[in-house]
Simulated assay, not measured.
Amino acid sequence: MTQTPLQTDVAIIGAGPTGLFAAFQCAMLRLNCLLIDVLPEIGGQCVALYPEKPIYDIPACPAVEGAQLIANLEQQLAPFNVPRLLKHRLESLSGHRGDFTLGTDKGAHIKAKAVIIAAGAGAFGPNRPPLDGLEDFENSGAVQYYVRRKADFEGRSIVIAGGGDSALDWALALKDKAEKLYLVHRRDRFRGAPESLRQLDEAVENGQIEKIVPYQLHALHGQNGALEAVEVVDLEGNTRKLHANTLLPFFGLATDLGPIARWGMDTVRSTIPVTPSSCETSLPGVFAIGDVATYPGKLKLILQGFSEAAMAAHSIYPIVNPDQALHFEYSTSKGVPNT
């Protein structure tokens, strides 16, 4: 028996922060939309990877944890009762601008006039360090790639490896929880916001974090999945053992667009080029926003994804309502429409 297709104006692929805000922007323009995500809950990486990680670049929020940001976006969207398909992976896209058909791995079919891809990094997983015996320590929880609850690291001796924002942010977030915290990087230069670098220098000076530079991971020592020490090596081959029971390697995510890459759009290294003024892809009627979208001058910040969500929604309006002019009003005067 063929399932009746779900009808909507805009199908939004991805229910992370950018996808949720895109749904809000569409709803404010009276565009019906549907959120689709492969995860069992909304929130994307904010909830799946770092619900307790503070985010500092959301306007009007000096600091907000990932899970709280999603809760705020959900509250903002709540008056519109936007439907969602969770635990559904988009497998197929056919049709054209104004008349698309999408299919999921669960057999659902969606008819939409436009599509917004807010898939973040796509399918993602951690870049794992090439260390012997790594899997045993992963299985025991001694090696972890995500921090879901800071309380789980209370009193631990922790090695954090990496030189980017994630390594810096978690070193700063866990320094007051850990008994001992090492930060390992192959050079004494870290890629982070100036304020994070200032806080790192302060924590090092206060003895809360010990920088181990220029070193990189070399071996793990322990028995039956219980980590006892992390061995590091410098460029000259000199080794050093750091006594620790937890290793947090932050070497970025391995990403994959999955079926999206086969939909006929231009792609560049797991990202989708878009027109900056509209966020439309090379496939007319399909838009991409957030981390998955790329263009000259692109900043991979949630706040830029929010801006792209608004641009995409306004660009989609004439596709859904070709005979109606959009008279833009500020939300301060327009308010949230009664639904």
Rank of each mutant, 00 (worst) to 15 (best):
A108F: 02
A108W: 13
A108Y: 08
H109D: 07
H109M: 10
I110F: 01
K111P: 05
A112V: 06
A112D: 00
K113L: 12
V115N: 01
I117T: 15
G120P: 09
A121C: 08
A121T: 13
A121P: 06
A121K: 11
A123H: 12
A123C: 11
A123T: 10
F124T: 14
G125T: 09
G125K: 04
N127Q: 11
P130L: 03
L131A: 05
L134G: 09
L134H: 08
L134M: 08
L134V: 05
E135I: 05
F137N: 12
F137T: 10
E138W: 07
G141W: 07
A142F: 01
A142E: 01
A142T: 13
A142Y: 10
A142G: 07
V143C: 14
V143Y: 09
V143S: 08
Q144W: 01
Y145N: 03
Y145Q: 13
Y146G: 09
Y146Q: 14
R148G: 00
R148C: 07
R148D: 02
R149L: 08
A151H: 01
A151Y: 02
A151L: 12
F153V: 02
E154I: 14
E154K: 05
G155K: 15
R156V: 08
V159L: 09
A161Q: 15
A161V: 06
A161I: 03
G162R: 06
G163T: 03
G164D: 07
D165F: 10
S166K: 07
S166Y: 05
L168P: 04
D169M: 00
L172M: 09
L172H: 00
L172A: 11
L172K: 01
K175C: 14
D176M: 06
K177G: 03
K177R: 15
A178S: 02
A178V: 08
A178H: 05
A178Y: 04
E179D: 08
K180D: 07
K180P: 12
L183Y: 10
V184M: 00
H185G: 06
R186T: 09
R187N: 15
R187H: 14
D188V: 02
R189P: 00
R189V: 03
F190E: 11
F190S: 01
P194L: 02
P194I: 08
P194F: 11
L197T: 06
R198F: 12
Q199D: 11
Q199I: 03
D201H: 07
E202Y: 03
E202R: 04
A203M: 04
A203F: 00
E205A: 13
I209H: 04
I209Y: 01
E210A: 04
K211H: 11
I212T: 10
V213P: 00
V213G: 05
P214V: 02
Y215F: 15
Q216F: 08
Q216W: 09
L217K: 00
L217D: 11
H218W: 10
H218A: 04
H218S: 13
H218G: 05
